[in-house]
Amino acid sequence: MRAQFVFQEVWTGLRRNLTMTIALVVVVAISLSLLGTGLLFVKQVDNTRTYWQGKVEISVYLCTSSSVSTQCRQNGPATPAELASIKSDLSGLPQVEHVYYESQAQAFQHFKQDFSQDPSFVSTVSPGDIPDSFEVKLKNPTADFSVVAGTVQGRPGVDDIVDDRSILNNFYKLLDGARNAVVIIAIILIIAAALLVANTIRLSAFNRRRETSIMRLVGASNFYIQLPFLVEGVIAGLFGWLIAAGLLIAVKSLGLDTLQEYFTFNVRLSAGDLVEVVLLTMIVGVVLCGVTSFLTLRRYLRV
């Protein structure tokens, strides 16, 4: 009885200001899907970061006969004695987890693998062009780079020291920037959605002021008077969320997963991540609409 009455009222309300309802659903859908996209981005960046965290190393490039830096031209290519002393000094540092020597031949092999799709580029490079290096894995990559770099910097035989993180940081900056932009737009849209909910509910309350005044008069409880409006807001929110959920699934399967195919490493988001984000946007949508409706009603439907 009660449920039937409430839903009848809700249906009348949604139908009577249909244009407003549609606007509300669309804005909720867009704001929630942007918010969800932002959250998916956060997860993607985190995944990538964790993946790389275990892999970042410092590369200490050594001088070869074809090195062009002034330092290498003064000292000539690294001698076996220099190699041994650099290696032992690096291994001796407490911050270093392990040191691995990559010879010119190995480095060339890796290079050929990485650019296997571009044989014309590979053919311009000969094995001697790529320097050999020490790949140093640090225990704490964020803190110890300068200490470790300092011990070998400028030594005879050392050409250049590269922190892998500095390369990745640019990539992260790009991802973080994109994520922040998406989240900021989403927040602005959510505010717009909240205002629109307030307006829709107000219009709905105005449309039904005759009914509500009679309800008050015959002693319907506040809850009973407000419930249809509240449900109306929440239902519009749920419709918006359904559309947003569809868009989010599309963003993941068409956007992020396609992007994934350009990487050789696997940082694909799991279905669990997607479900988590979709559920989170649902909670945001329902709470947003419910709370806004409630606050609006408190102002417009006093006892």
Binding site: M1, R2, M215, V218
Partner: peptide, 11 residues
């Protein structure tokens, strides 16, 4: 009937 419906009387 509206007056009774809104105070939750049984049908």
């Amino acid at each position: 009937a509206f007056a009774l419906e809104v105070i939750g009387k049984p049908r």
